[in-house]
């Protein structure tokens, strides 16, 4: 049986049998990996602490036909600050849920992996009101469905953009407007995120515009994935 080594971030865990779990990870070299962690639900398992959700690990697996088997997992980063903060946790949940839907099995995805680790590290260290929105917009750009943000999606005129329509794939001017109304501040923020000025956008304090950017990004992502992001909606009921 062939074995492989890679890094990974745990996206999902599902109970299997008595004491095992199926662990879904995003890895740079092998894309989405679904692997069995044997005995991981027992308290004495040496794998358990390394294979909790949102953990960055270095792992060794046996390759299986359908599911691989994890033989070793060493923690690289547990993102402790996320685990200890009820406000950061929902953001991390939405990030891993989205990556789980986007990632392809056994297909190298180094950019997606790097983006997720980078976003989780930023979330753990400094956070940022627009971080989740920025992550989703960047992810859509990586998927090849970056929104049109420099001109009107419909007529192509470089006019003031006042609306966003996820089904048309971008922002719209006053005469072509459809979908959601947007504020100029939100348009500026999305331009910064997608135009290489991410750091500047992340420094923005929480405001109506940052909330708007996150809402639009969720809308666009759900349209692209053709499914609801459960964590984005469930988390909003937390106090």
């Amino acid at each position: 049986m062939a074995s492989f080594r890679d890094q990974g971030v745990v996206l999902r865990t599902t109970r299997l049998g008595e004491a095992d779990r199926i662990i879904t990870l995003i890895t740079p070299e092998h894309g989405k990996v679904r692997a069995v962690a044997k005995g991981v639900r027992k308290t004495k398992s040496k794998l358990a602490g390394s294979l909790d959700l949102v953990t960055h690990v270095s792992l060794a697996c046996w390759k299986g036909r359908e599911l691989d088997v994890i033989t070793q997992a060493d923690v690289i980063d547990v993102f402790r600050a996320i685990r200890e903060d009820l406000d950061k946790m929902p953001v991390a949940f939405t990030m891993i849920e989205t990556v789980d839907h986007v990632a392809l099995e056994r297909h190298p995805m180094p950019e997606l992996f790097k983006m997720l680790v980078g976003a989780l590290s930023t979330l753990a260290s400094e956070g940022g009101a627009v971080l989740l929105g920025a992550f989703l917009w960047k992810l859509l750009a990586l998927e090849g469905v970056s929104p049109v943000v420099d001109r009107c999606t419909s007529c192509g005129e470089p006019a003031e953009l006042v609306a966003f329509d996820e089904s048309l794939g971008g922002f719209l001017c006053r005469s072509c407007r459809s979908g959601q109304a947007v504020t100029p501040e939100a348009v500026t923020l999305v331009r910064q995120i997608l135009g290489g000025r991410l750091r500047q956008a992340l420094a923005e304090p929480p405001s109506r515009a940052t909330a708007e950017v996150e809402r639009l990004a969720t809308l666009a992502t759900e349209y692209h994935l053709d499914r609801r992001l459960r964590s984005a909606h469930t988390s909003s009921s937390l106090p």
Binding site: P90, T94, R230, S231, T234, S237, L238
Partner: peptide, 11 residues
């Protein structure tokens, strides 16, 4: 337990 990915919220 709370599991937003599975749609389990406080309610």
């Amino acid at each position: 337990a709370l599991n937003p990915i599975e749609g389990v919220g406080p309610d």
